[in-house]
């Protein structure tokens, strides 16, 4: 058996472990419920003359800016730490597998679950657009949008995954993930406002380095670049936009840094016994 096969076994294990949790199912149901709401509201506002045939983009992106990242944080927060909390890390790491293979399997297993949730919400977004606004066009961009959304979740998934390994407490890791998301959003909002008032480029440049900027603007920026943004009345529906390439690079840099931190922690430290 090679390293890839050993990691793949852990991927399967991680998926099985996540599916056993009732909150994962609850999250999926909640994600779908949250997706339906904006469509219901928009469809009632007939006077706004919603004429666009790309409302599926709105459907796909509606939950993306917040909800997908929250799911990523929740899944990553428990990925490594729960094995320590439940005392099952001993069982797994006393088997013929390296720590790197184990962590790789845990990372991709968790990320696959987040992707699976995103598959459901993407499909649901397209179906809702059809149901509320009739036939849609440019549907060949759906897979690309899906990839962009999933890729953008990598950032907060990696940050929280690192905390999950370093702190070895799921609650703390999730709180840290949420905390960084909220603080980054607030600081980003303030910097955007300062930029609007002063037009000083430095505020926007700093804002772009914050984790929320690239994670939340990447998919909508891509939609804007592809010119598939839905219209509301005479203007486009307001969604965050920016440089797709820069956002892609920033997501990658954050992901690599935090995954490496998690890797060094796991490889260099002891496997702690069950948390008291």
């Amino acid at each position: 058996m090679n390293a890839l096969q050993r990691s793949a076994i852990i991927v399967g294990y991680e998926l099985r472990r996540a599916i056993a949790k009732k909150w994962v199912l609850a999250l999926i149901i909640l994600a779908l419920a949250i997706q339906i709401l904006p469509f219901v509201v928009l469809s009632r506002l007939a006077e706004l003359d919603i004429i666009n045939e790309t409302m599926w983009v709105f459907g796909v992106l509606s939950g993306q800016s917040l909800f997908v990242h929250l799911i990523a944080i929740l899944v990553a927060g428990g990925s490594m730490s729960e094995e320590y909390e439940h005392g099952t890390a001993d069982i797994l790491l006393s088997k013929p597998i390296t720590r790197v293979e184990y962590m790789t399997g845990k990372f991709f297993g968790g990320f696959l679950l987040v992707s699976f949730v995103e598959v459901i919400t993407t499909v649901m977004g397209v179906i809702l657009a059809f149901a509320f606004f009739g036939p849609q066009r440019d549907l060949h961009f759906v897979p690309l949008m899906f990839v962009a959304i999933v890729y953008s979740t990598l950032l907060f998934f990696s940050i929280t995954f690192m905390f999950s390994e370093v702190l070895r407490r799921s609650t703390l890791a999730i709180l840290m993930g949420f905390g960084i998301f909220i603080v980054s959003s607030i600081v980003g909002g303030v910097l955007s406002s300062l930029y609007s008032f002063t037009e000083e480029q430095v505020y926007m440049d700093v804002n772009k380095l914050l984790p929320t900027w690239s994670a939340t603007t990447l998919p909508s920026s891509l939609a804007a670049n592809l010119k598939i943004m839905p219209l509301l009345g005479n203007g486009m529906i307001e969604l965050p936009s920016g440089d797709v390439h820069l956002a892609t690079i920033i997501v990658a840099i954050y992901a690599v840094i935090f995954v490496l931190l998690a890797y060094f922690r796991l490889v260099r430290s002891d496997v702690t016994k069950r948390a008291a």
């Binding site: 001993d90 069982i91 088997k95 013929p96 597998i97 390296t98």
Partner: peptide, 22 residues
């Protein structure tokens, strides 16, 4: 080299915490 060292080893921990969902 845990892969080779642990291949022919079995381990039963004290008061094991097993994956209860299996």
């Amino acid at each position: 080299d845990p892969v080779h060292a642990l291949q022919s080893l079995g381990y039963a921990p004290e008061l094991p915490n097993l994956q209860t969902f299996f």
